[in-house]
C-alpha cells in the first residue's frame, strides 16, 4: 500500500495516546492506524490497558497526551477534545449497559438522530441482528446472547464512524460465544463499519480480526495479521501470550555462540542471555533424536501434550496430533527432533 492511499484510507489514527489513572500509568503509548472498513482487535492480558485505550478512543477518558484522528479530523489532542456525544461512535460494553427501563426497540432507537424515522431505522437493525418480534420485550427478559445483539444493534443504528467492542463475548457461555462470534462478524461486515474490538481471548482475536495489535503494559507491542503474530512474534511477551510456546532460557556459551542439546546456534549480536521460543508443534518425538525423559502426559482428545526433560534439565512441551502416536509412558526415554529452528530473543 503506497503512502497516498494509506492516508486517505485511514479511519482512525492514534498517535502516542497516554493516560495515568490514579497511581497507575494505564496507557503509556497507544499508537495505531485502523483502515476504513477494517476489523481491528487489540489483544492483551488483563490489566494491559486495553479497555482504557477503548475509553480514550470513545472519549470517555481524556488523554494526558497524544493525538487522535478520525479520518482527517483531529478528535483529541492537548488543546482539542471532542466529547463522546459528538464523536459518532458506536460502543458495545462488556456488560452491554442496556437501558433497563426501556424496551428493546427504545434502546435501539435511542441514538438515532432523526427522531421521525428512528422507529423505522431501529426496526431495520433489529432485523439485521435477527431479533424481529422482540420489539417490546424488557431487557431483563432477554438472554445474554440476545442482550448482546441488542447492544450491537443499538450501537450500529446511528451509523457510527467506528464501532467499538469492549470484550463483547466475555459474559457469555463458551458454546454461545463461538456461535455469536460468527454472527457478529457477519453483521459488522454487512454494516460495513470500521470496528475496533478489545479482548483478552486470543482465539477470539485470531478468528475475527483482519489485523491484531498486541498490547502489554500500556503499549502496543506488535501489529500484524493474525498469522504473523502467531508465527512470527516480535518479542518474547508476544510469543509467551500466543499458542502456549515453550520458552527456554540459556546463557551464551561463547561470544555469539550457544550450545544446547539440539546442537550449536550462532547468535547475531554479542548477548549473554537468550530466550528460545519453540512452538510445541515444531518438536517431534522420534527414535533417532536428542535424548529426553517423559515427565508427564496430558490427553486432550484430538491432541496430547508430552512434557519432556532434556539432558540439561530444561523442560519442553511436545504436542502430538492425530491418533497414531507411539505409546509412551511417564519415565520413558525418548528421542526429540526440531521441525523448525527456534526463534531467538535477547534476554539481556
Amino acid at each position: 500500500m503506497n503512502d497516498r492511499q494509506g492516508k486517505t484510507d485511514i479511519a482512525l489514527r492514534a498517535d502516542k495516546l497516554a493516560l495515568r489513572l490514579g497511581s497507575v500509568q494505564a496507557v503509556t503509548d497507544l499508537s495505531l492506524d485502523i483502515r476504513q472498513g477494517e476489523f481491528f482487535a487489540i489483544l492483551g492480558p488483563s490489566g494491559s490497558g486495553k479497555t482504557t485505550s477503548l475509553r480514550l478512543i470513545a472519549g470517555l477518558e481524556r488523554p494526558d497526551s497524544g493525538e487522535l484522528y478520525f479520518g482527517q479530523n483531529l478528535i483529541s489532542s492537548n488543546t482539542t477534545f471532542v466529547t463522546p456525544q459528538e464523536r459518532k461512535i458506536g460502543m458495545v460494553f462488556q456488560d452491554y449497559a442496556l437501558f433497563p427501563h426501556m424496551t428493546v426497540l427504545e434502546n435501539i432507537a435511542y441514538g438515532v438522530g432523526d427522531k421521525a424515522k428512528s422507529n423505522i431505522i431501529a426496526h431495520e437493525y433489529l432485523n439485521l441482528v435477527n431479533l424481529v418480534g422482540f420489539e417490546d420485550r424488557r431487557i431483563s427478559d432477554l438472554s445474554g446472547g440476545e442482550q448482546q445483539r441488542v447492544a450491537l444493534a443499538r450501537a450500529l443504528a446511528p451509523q457510527p464512524n467506528i464501532l467499538l467492542l469492549d470484550e463483547p463475548f466475555s459474559n457469555l457461555d463458551p458454546v454461545l460465544r463461538v456461535n455469536l462470534r460468527e454472527q457478529v462478524r457477519r453483521i459488522v461486515r454487512s454494516a460495513g463499519v470500521t470496528t475496533l474490538m478489545v479482548t483478552h481471548d486470543q482465539e477470539e482475536a485470531l478468528s475475527m480480526a483482519d489485523r491484531i495489535g498486541f498490547m502489554k503494559e500500556g503499549h502496543i507491542r506488535q501489529v500484524g495479521v493474525p498469522e504473523e503474530l502467531f508465527t512470527q512474534p516480535s518479542d518474547v511477551s508476544v510469543a509467551e501470550f500466543f499458542g502456549d510456546s515453550n520458552i527456554l532460557q540459556y546463557n551464551a556459551s561463547a561470544p555469539r555462540t550457544l550450545n544446547w542439546p539440539f546442537g550449536t546456534l550462532s547468535l547475531l549480536d554479542e548477548i549473554s542471555a537468550v530466550s528460545l521460543v519453540i512452538s510445541p508443534d515444531s518438536v517431534e518425538i522420534t527414535p533417532r533424536g536428542v535424548d529426553g525423559v517423559v515427565l508427564d502426559l496430558q490427553y486432550f482428545g484430538y491432541y496430547r501434550k508430552v512434557l519432556v526433560e532434556l539432558s540439561d534439565g530444561q523442560h519442553i512441551h511436545v504436542r502430538q496430533t492425530g491418533f497414531n502416536y507411539v505409546p509412551t509412558n511417564i519415565g520413558d526415554r525418548v528421542g526429540l527432533a526440531l521441525l523448525k529452528a527456534p526463534t531467538i530473543f535477547s534476554a539481556d
Binding site: R55, A58, G59, L60, T83, P84, Q85, E86, R87, K88, I89, G90, M91, F93, Q94, D95, A97, L98, F99, P100, Y110, G111, G113, R154, A155, P158, L164
Partner: peptide, 15 residues
Amino acid sequence: LQQNVQSAAKGLGAG
C-alpha cells in the same frame, strides 16, 4: 446502576 449505562448514552450522542 450499571457502570456504563450513562457512558453508553453519551456514546450514542446524548448530551
